[in-house]
Structures are given as structure tokens and as C-alpha cells.
């Protein structure tokens, strides 16, 4: 396999269920060793994309290659090189954690001894050594997900697919799983992660592919995506709801882009060009207008704002920020 070739390539993937288009020509490229987050709302086609890449689902159109093998024509070769962690902990509840890992190891054609050895290693690595002999039924949500992750790593996969790995977990379970995923990063495994949590993509991913209605609408590093919607923002909370309109007029003069207003929470936000000048000018102008504020802050845009500004626009237009040092060799 050519070392510069991306590990995951999808071109124009299409999939429909009945009349509904789940994927409408999705393109995705993930370089070897990268962590790519596929970010999108429910129903955007994230799970469909992962299921096609993991050979669980046949695409209706387009093609995809994983670790150099075609996902349709070379399914067995692909399956020998991937790990899949689905939306729910896909483990046998009745068996113990160790029995689960040994089972998946044997079915991945490790010998009996190798499968047992691998199970021990993975249990230790994911902090499950003490509970390895207990039935999975008694595991907490976080423990199940960690076991599920371990099961996805049985074969030391070239590509690991994580489909919403923290959905439904409490904050503690989420932190446990994040820590486990971060440990994988830098180990050479290429990770494709779907998520609807922007924070998750921000924390774990090198590159983000934002998808909506079955196609990619943006891609880049987290910073690139944030820069793309206009650098720093000023955020204000006014004390009186009646002042929201007045404050919006004041900020309009200072802002470098449209002012977003949330009247219910008496909140205003807008992109600004020169951060310090904008801050002092805002404080001065609001005081002059007699508008009392509860909070004034400067901050980088969150991925939420990136996401909403992208999906609110024409979603069919593919938008790619400049990536001078990250251009993928296709």
C-alpha cells in the first residue's frame, strides 16, 4: 500500500432507504493515522456512512476504499483490517468481559492462546482487568463502552470506526471513553469517529467533516472551521429585555458581520475585526446609550456556531477552508 495514500476514501457515496436519501454523494478522505470526526445532526447520514465503510451496508452508488481495499468487492479483506464500535455497546450481556473479547478474537481467527492473551491485554488497558470475569450485564454504561472499544481493537485495526461512541453516556462515562480514544491517537491507528457533539469532535479530531442531509458541507481542522466563520466574536448579555433591540443597534455599528440576537436570554453576539478596540468601543457605546449589561466577553466561535452557520446556509454548496499544510494527497 502506498504510504501517502489516504486510508479511507469515499467518493460520491449514495444510499437510499425507500424514498429517503440517507447519503447523497458523500465524499470523505482520511489520511493514514489521522482522527477524522464526521459531525452532523441526527439523520445526517453519519451512521449510514460508517456502516458502508465497515462493509455492513452496500452503497447504492459511489465507491469507497478502506486500507486499500474496495468495501464492496473486497469485504473480507476490509473486515480483516477494521474495528467497529457501533452506537450501542455490541457485546454479549451474558458472557463476561473476557469471554466476549476471547470470542471476538477467535472469530477474528486468532488462535486460542493468542485470543486469550489479547483479551488480557485489552482488559488491562481499558481498566477492566478486575471485572473481566464478571458478566457484562452488571457493567456500568462506561464500562460497557470501554469493553466495546476493546472489542473493536482485537485485531489492532488499521482503521477504527467509532459510531457515536459516547451517545447516551453520563459525563463520567463520556470522560472515560474520551480518555480511551485519546490513548489510541498517535498509535498509528486511523480513526473515523461520528458524533453529534461538537465538543467531542473538537477534543478528539485532527480533521472534521461536517455532513448534513447526506453530503459533506465543510471540512477542515477545528481551528480552520472556527476561523472560517470569522475569527473573534463579542458576546453580550444585557440586563433588561427591553434593551436588546437598542444594544443590537449599537453593536451593529461595531461588528464586522451580522449580529445574532437571542431575545429570550437577552444575549447578543457578533463577529469583530479588531478584538480590543471592539471591546472598549462596545463598553463605551453601550454606556453612552444607557444600556446596562450583565456580561461582556470576547471569544473564539464554538463549533456549535460554526455548525449552525453552515447548516443554516445552502447546505448543497461544498465549502472548504484553505488548508495549506493539510492538503490530502488523493
Amino acid at each position: 500500500m502506498d504510504a501517502t495514500r489516504p486510508t479511507v476514501v469515499a467518493e460520491g457515496l449514495c444510499k437510499r432507504y425507500g424514498g429517503k436519501e440517507a447519503l447523497a454523494g458523500l465524499d470523505l478522505t482520511v489520511p493514514a493515522g489521522a482522527v477524522c470526526a464526521v459531525l452532523g445532526p441526527n439523520g445526517a447520514g453519519k451512521t449510514t456512512a460508517v456502516r458502508i465503510l465497515a462493509t455492513l451496508l452496500r452503497p447504492d452508488g459511489g465507491r469507497a476504499e478502506v486500507a486499500g481495499f474496495d468495501v464492496v468487492r473486497q469485504g473480507p479483506e476490509v473486515r480483516a483490517r477494521i474495528g467497529l464500535v457501533g452506537q450501542q455497546a455490541a457485546v454479549d450481556e451474558i458472557l463476561s468481559g473476557r469471554q466476549n473479547l476471547e470470542l471476538f478474537g477467535r472469530l477474528s481467527h486468532l488462535g486460542a492462546r493468542a485470543a486469550a492473551h489479547r483479551a488480557d491485554e485489552l482488559l488491562a488497558r481499558f481498566g477492566l482487568a478486575d471485572t473481566g470475569a464478571k458478566a457484562v450485564k452488571g457493567y456500568s454504561g462506561g464500562m460497557r463502552r470501554r469493553l466495546d472499544l476493546a472489542a473493536g481493537l482485537i485485531l489492532a485495526p488499521v482503521v477504527l470506526f467509532l459510531d457515536e461512541p459516547t451517545t447516551g453516556l453520563d459525563p463520567r462515562g463520556r470522560n472515560e471513553v474520551w480518555a480511551s480514544i485519546r490513548e489510541l491517537v498517535g498509535s498509528g491507528t486511523t480513526v473515523v469517529l461520528t458524533t453529534q457533539y461538537l465538543e467531542e469532535a473538537d477534543r478528539l479530531a485532527d480533521t472534521i467533516c461536517v455532513i448534513d442531509a447526506g453530503r459533506a458541507i465543510a471540512r477542515g481542522t477545528p481551528d480552520e472551521l472556527k476561523n472560517a466563520i470569522g475569527g473573534d466574536r463579542i458576546a453580550i448579555v444585557v440586563r433588561e429585555a427591553a434593551d436588546v433591540a437598542g444594544a443590537a443597534r449599537v453593536i451593529e455599528r461595531i461588528a464586522s458581520g451580522p449580529v445574532e440576537v437571542d431575545p429570550d436570554r437577552r444575549r447578543l453576539g457578533a463577529p469583530v475585526a479588531d478584538r480590543m478596540a471592539a471591546l472598549t468601543e462596545t463598553v463605551r457605546a453601550l454606556a453612552e446609550a444607557g444600556i446596562e449589561t450583565e456580561d461582556i466577553a470576547l471569544r473564539r466561535p464554538t463549533l456549535d456556531e460554526v455548525f449552525f452557520s453552515l447548516t443554516a446556509n445552502d447546505g448543497s454548496k461544498l465549502w472548504t477552508p484553505a488548508r495549506p499544510d493539510r492538503e490530502e494527497a488523493a
Binding site: 456502516r51 465497515a54 462493509t55 473486515r79 457501533g86 455490541a90 472469530l107 477474528s108
Partner: peptide
């Protein structure tokens, strides 16, 4: 539970 899918993703 998704266990069938896990099997289907194994070699």
C-alpha cells in the same frame, strides 16, 4: 443489541 452487526464486521 448490535451483536449481529459486530459479527458481520469481523473477518
Amino acid at each position: 443489541r448490535g451483536v449481529t452487526d459486530r459479527f458481520r464486521s469481523l473477518p
